[in-house]
């Protein structure tokens, strides 16, 4: 931050502002009004010069500045997650903040593409970063060489509320986040329900035979069971990769370790389970109803061999996960 203070002397703009602001009462900071005139919904779009103007020189306001990188090519998820909340917070303060306090807090946001210089000067290599610059004159003024407060992003869902609390404690201002009630969501839900009902009404004669089809429900049930027992929920919750590099230039489809897995291996396992189940159903239900001795023998032989090999392969895969597992079925020893 020392850098900023040295910049202060370099920039003529800043120096004129100092003289201007020092002569006016803190409450009617012209710099403040000037900056605000550039804002949309209480959020100032900051570029390099504006940034200097905002954070240098005597000022009677706290400025909250978000340095972010919204460019798709940079791929900053956190920036995109946080931006709506930040804009909402600025808007809440702009519209709902107490009138007599409103000029004591400024929200600014800058993008990497607009203010590369600022990022370089501050030595920032990651985004988003959020600074809270305390005022230098007036009540709550910080000492001249005070460092700005750097906000820590939390991995929580309600970032905006948390930031509002932090700003409140830092600036002593009653900052609150007002989330607008999202009516469109309600309308959308209502419309969806209505359209579904209407579709149902017209399509019911055609849908009913399908819905009443036992095989359809059986298939759905079995698919659900295969998905769940092959660890699909684990993939969903942990967001595991589909496969990973094995460190020797190749790809490995099976994760090492008992309580770890990749997407590909769960699919393999689900297919194995499905195949084995199918064989059992065929053996138990279809074969005894078959006519003809020869055909029956062939079917029994085929299904039995498939079960044997499938089970053997399943155990081999399991031995990869748990090397201490001592069992295997003969032809497939690893």
């Amino acid at each position: 931050m020392r850098l900023l203070h040295s910049l202060l002397t370099l920039l003529p703009l800043a120096s004129t502002l100092i003289s201007a602001s020092s002569s006016t009462p803190a409450d009617l900071d012209p710099k403040h009004t000037q900056l605000l005139s550039k804002s949309t919904n209480g959020l100032i779009r900051v570029d390099d010069p504006t940034f200097e103007a905002l954070v240098t020189g005597p000022r009677a306001y706290t400025s909250v500045i978000l340095l972010t990188a919204l460019d798709k090519r940079i791929g900053c998820d956190m920036c995109h997650l946080f931006q709506p909340d930040f804009e909402l917070l600025a808007k809440s303060w702009w519209e709902k903040g107490p009138k007599e306090e409103r000029h004591r807090l400024l929200f600014g946001s800058t993008d990497y593409s607009k203010a590369k210089g600022t990022f370089q000067k501050l030595g920032l290599t990651s985004a988003p970063v959020l600074y809270i610059f305390p005022p230098t004159v007036g009540p709550n003024a910080a000492p001249a060489n005070a460092q700005p407060y750097k906000y820590d992003f939390l991995p929580t869902a309600k970032q905006g509320e948390h930031l509002a609390r932090v700003i409140s404690t830092q600036s002593g201002l009653p900052v609150q986040l007002h989330r607008p009630i999202d009516y469109t969501k309600y309308y959308l839900t209502a419309a969806t329900i209505l359209s579904i009902l209407l579709t149902l009404k017209f399509a019911l004669p055609y849908l009913l035979p399908v819905l009443l089809n036992r095989n359809l429900w059986a298939a759905l049930t079995l698919i659900a069971i295969f998905l769940f027992t092959s660890g699909h929920m684990f993939n969903h919750i942990r967001k595991v990769p589909y496969m990973a590099s094995d460190g020797r230039g190749g790809v490995s489809y099976i994760a090492g370790g008992f309580s770890n897995q990749y997407g590909a291996e769960t699919q393999l396992v689900a297919v194995l389970y499905a195949g084995l189940t199918f064989c059992v159903i065929a053996l138990g239900m279809k074969v005894p109803r078959m006519e003809g001795r020869g055909r029956q023998d062939v079917a029994v032989l085929v299904w039995s061999v498939v079960v044997w090999l499938g089970m053997g392969y399943l155990m081999t895969v399991f031995r990869v996960k748990n090397p201490a597992y001592p069992f295997y079925l003969p032809p497939l020893v690893k």
Binding site: S230, G231, F234, I237, F258, S259, Q261, F318, N322
Partner: peptide, 11 residues
């Protein structure tokens, strides 16, 4: 309370 990986099912 962690999710279950497939080896646990087979195990």
């Amino acid at each position: 309370h962690q999710p279950t990986a497939w080896p646990a099912f087979f195990f």
